[in-house]
Amino acid sequence: MSATQLNSLPVDSSSSPILDSLPNPSVADGICPRRAQTQIDLMLLAIEALELGGSEAILLVAEEIGVQDIIKDRVTLWRLRNTNPLRRYYQRRSLSFTEAKALVLVGCNLARRLTVLIRQLLLAHQQLAEKDLSADHHFRLADYLERFRAHFRSRMNPRRSAVMAYQSDESLNQLALFLLTQLLFCTGTYGAQRYWTSLFDGEVA
């Protein structure tokens, strides 16, 4: 077997020290649960709604933190993200821990860079809610929600019941705000560890 063939095999997590900052949870089969796959994709979707050119940024950061062997290019990223069962182009495969960790670390890294904006939007939402005002009163927040709704609707499979639950603008806004809260927690010192662990709540024996 030639060396090039070896290179195309899945990368072992031990080869990338940054991935070892996240532990392997003891879930059955050693693969990511569906909920984790959904959550990771949605987290990245929220980042894309926050930042124009988000998917470009994902690839840049992947290279910066040294996981470009796992998230090689646009096509690979597309395939990894389409492990989310809610997607229109669901790939019917699971994320390996290595792949999931790489995506989570990239997402948390991007969230950290967007800290100021994330805090601004959450505070704005809070202040508007106190005054009983809609998000339309804050341009940047309304913009984020609108973009998120558009991304979600264009990429998720409307025939799936989990997606059908998000038909209204209001329900999608709530999802967008929940994801924004998750992103805030991802910006912290142990953000990646906390987020990663939360993906397996209720999944371990």
């Binding site: 949870p25 560890q193 993906l199 709540d201």
Partner: peptide
């Protein structure tokens, strides 16, 4: 130190 462990299936009381 940071102690993190996911909830087990049995531990989840409320989703």
């Amino acid at each position: 130190a940071l102690k993190l462990r996911p909830l087990s299936r049995r531990q989840v009381t409320r989703t």
